[in-house]
């Protein structure tokens, strides 16, 4: 193994960061729960028993039952699938589109740059959740539309980050060298620019997944995301409002699940930022 590989360096530093490791551990648990949901969950997440609504946590139902008499633990377990799905899909979408736009804008500059980045500025001028609500209102309240909306509102951040890195890197000598050797634009962008702009991108992606989970929960809370009986954490919170005083656990546990998921990605993002920061080298 090449010990001077910058990724290996970064991994070594990440391993020493307690915060980063905690993030990895949480995400690992989350992913495992999501994958093995049918094995772990004691009940079906949508099986109702309206004769036993609002049961307090007990041995039968570890986290109690909700407004439809469904097992809250099972719903939270299955809900992890949806939250991860939302995080990965919507940020994946934002990543692909944002990076493409950012690379084009940064590399070619000029009018193209101006047009793309002004559009991004316009999108950033809206409060992001408001923009997402508008998009969902047009497309119709469904989980897949909510994911799409969250993807769209996250595009400008990626475009900005990658554009600024591109502008710095493209003036570097190794890019000129590649061009002298006859490399085309496409090859330069993919082989030279993108890999060197990776570090901030990874950090941004990780942190964005956390925001995406939160935004999806917010949209579902407003009734614009997952539709019943989908066990989405935000939707669970929303339906639990009417029983806040009578059965607080119905609201508490999905809330804690959201905190847990968001925390995991945020911690990892922080750890990665430290690990990938060149100034931190050998400190």
């Amino acid at each position: 193994m090449n010990l001077n590989n910058p990724w290996f360096e970064a991994w070594k530093r990440l391993r020493k960061s307690k915060i980063g490791l905690a993030g990895i551990a949480i995400i690992f648990i989350l992913v495992a729960v999501a994958i093995f949901a049918p094995l772990i969950a004691p009940y079906s997440p949508i099986e109702q028993d309206i004769m036993s609504r609002y049961q307090a946590p007990s041995q039968r139902h570890l986290l109690g039952t909700d407004e439809m008499g469904r097992d809250i633990l099972s719903r939270i377990i299955y809900g992890s699938r949806i939250s991860l799905q939302v995080g990965l899909f919507s940020i994946g979408l934002a990543l692909v589109i944002g990076v493409t736009l950012g690379l084009i804008a940064g590399y070619y500059g000029g009018y193209l740059d101006m047009i793309i980045m002004r559009i991004m500025d316009i999108m950033l001028a809206f409060p992001s959740v408001l923009l997402a609500i508008a998009i969902v209102a047009i497309l119709g309240p469904q989980l897949k539309n909510a994911m799409l909306a969250i993807g769209i509102i996250n595009i400008p951040r990626f475009a900005r980050i990658i554009r600024s890195s591109t502008i710095t890197i493209k003036e570097d000598e190794f890019i000129s060298a590649a061009r002298v050797l006859g490399a085309g634009d496409f090859r330069i962008i993919l082989k030279h620019l993108l890999p060197n702009a990776m570090a901030p991108l990874i950090v941004q992606t990780t942190l964005s997944i956390a925001t995406a989970i939160l935004e999806a929960a917010a949209l579902s809370f407003l009734g614009l995301g997952a539709q019943p009986p989908t066990p989405e954490w935000g939707a669970m919170l929303s339906d639990a409002r009417s029983s806040l005083q009578k059965a607080p656990w119905v609201m508490t546990f999905p809330g804690m699940a959201i905190i847990f998921g968001v925390l995991g990605f945020n911690l990892l993002g922080d750890g990665l930022r430290d690990a990938l920061d060149p100034k931190m080298k050998n400190v």
Binding site: I46, Q48, I50, E67, M68, P228, P229, D239, S242
Partner: peptide
Amino acid sequence: PQGKFIAQAIQN
């Protein structure tokens, strides 16, 4: 009073 819950029960 709770159309959404009743709809879910009917769905069930």
